[in-house]
Nucleic acid binder design. Structure first.
Lengths: 241, 241
DNA sequence: CGGTAGGTTGAAAGGGGTCAAGTTGTGTGG
DNA sequence: CCACACAACTTGACCCCTTTCAACCTACCG
């Protein structure tokens, strides 16, 4: 349950701010947030783009929380550790998700890039100023945070009350819902990451994948991708959650 | 893991709004929220006070979410159910806590009074209007919601990675932190409630209490109250979380 | 091609669940 | 105020799902 091989704290490249508007417009929490305003994103104007390598740390639990982040591209894991090394992955973040909206003075979890990732970095001081200037922004952030809270509550139900196979089915369906469209899902995270997200061990996750494969509910494609062959049966397995 | 004997949906008494200001001023999420403004609470002006009996339902998962609530007195449980009846208690709410800030059009969990409770009911339409009139309120709600998210993340770590005894110790310490002051903690909820909050069974919770008792870490007082005899040893057991 | 990390599979052990039987506590009615 | 009924809680014995420990396989990368 270890292998936390985060390498460095400094991003590979730091792109200056103005380039932000040249990037593909990041949506705010796609499929989870009912976006109310569709005008130019005010956050993008004060964000600094940063690129992180695979397995690189973005910030660590306990560090001064001087910035919040929004994922533009790639995948990030957020996790908390117990003193003896047991790890719980709080969530996997994809394009559009916000990170670090804790409003505590220290980060309460760690963040690492799973794949090479691009994130917007928004300094706390600038965010506070922007919140003063644009009060409507607080309502959008409230909406985003509320969506995260809903996801967290679903995860509590999963962790507290579901069996290993139910957890795995729920996890794949949730990923599928985010990916939408085709039924092929990218699984860039390791079995260990999945285990630490679902409160299981790598072995149990692996056995679960095998069982879902032999039951013809999923199919493993190349490049660590998975196809959901029978979403309905999976939903049944996942106990409707 | 069942025994969900919620009785009625209508509150016992409905007190008219103006009385709100005569009640003891509810703090916003005590010990979890750094209260920034100390002026008269704007929510109280549009809130309607309601009293619920012990074991009475406040709202149920799936109902139209036409109001949010704030606990003035008593204790509330929030929970989600799986189709087969397995229950996960999302949280126990006490004075100052907010309920139902989901901003979905349906409640995503159920709420029931554990003890006789007084809550402020705030209609969604009125809350929206108030948010328009007082943009600063959104930032306070954002702060409250963020605190809930932090608590939810701690709970994920607990559910996913802690042993039964560690879960129980963490739970008692968290309650103790909220109660503050003396080390006697009120435990108005049943063993079944605690079990459904910690992802355990009543039997395991009961065995845990016995073990903590015989280890002289806690002492059971009358009226379902518990005294933490050795908070440090408990914190050790809880793995610092 | 060889080394290594990640993944799969097997066998055994254990923590917590399940089932069952007491015990305590509490609210109600006589 | 006491007696009863019922629910909540506790304790014990057994079982099972997941973990643990271990071996092996596979893929990627130098």
């Amino acid at each position: 349950m270890l292998a936390h091989t985060a390498i460095a704290a400094q991003p590979t490249r730091v792109l200056p701010g103005p380039l932000a508007s040249a990037m593909p417009m990041p949506r705010v929490a796609p499929s989870r947030t009912p976006t109310t305003t569709n005008d130019i994103d005010p956050l993008a104007t004060i964000a600094q783009l940063r690129v992180f390598d695979r397995e690189q740390a973005i910030f660590a639990e306990g560090e001064a929380a001087d910035a919040v982040f929004r994922v533009v591209d790639g995948m990030i894991r957020l996790y908390k550790l117990l003193p003896d090394g047991r790890r719980q992955i709080i969530g996997f973040l994809q394009a559009g998700d916000m990170v670090g909206l804790a409003f505590a003075d220290r980060y309460l979890y760690s963040a690492e890039a799973i794949t090479a990732s691009t994130v917007q970095r928004i300094a706390r001081s600038q965010l506070d100023a922007l919140l003063d200037a644009q009060p409507a922004l607080a309502r959008r952030l409230l909406s985003v945070t509320t969506s995260e809270l809903v996801a967290a509550q679903d995860q509590m139900l999963l962790l507290g009350r579901k069996s290993a196979l139910e957890k795995l089915a729920s996890f794949l369906l949730a990923l599928g819902r985010r990916a939408g469209a085709g039924r092929a899902i990218a699984l860039p995270m390791s079995r260990c990451d999945i285990a630490d997200h679902l409160g299981l061990t790598t072995e149990t996750v692996s056995r679960g994948f095998t069982k879902l494969k032999t039951s013809r509910l999923i199919r493993i494609l190349d490049g660590g991708r998975v196809e959901l062959l029978d979403a309905e049966a999976l939903a049944d397995l996942a106990d409707c959650a």
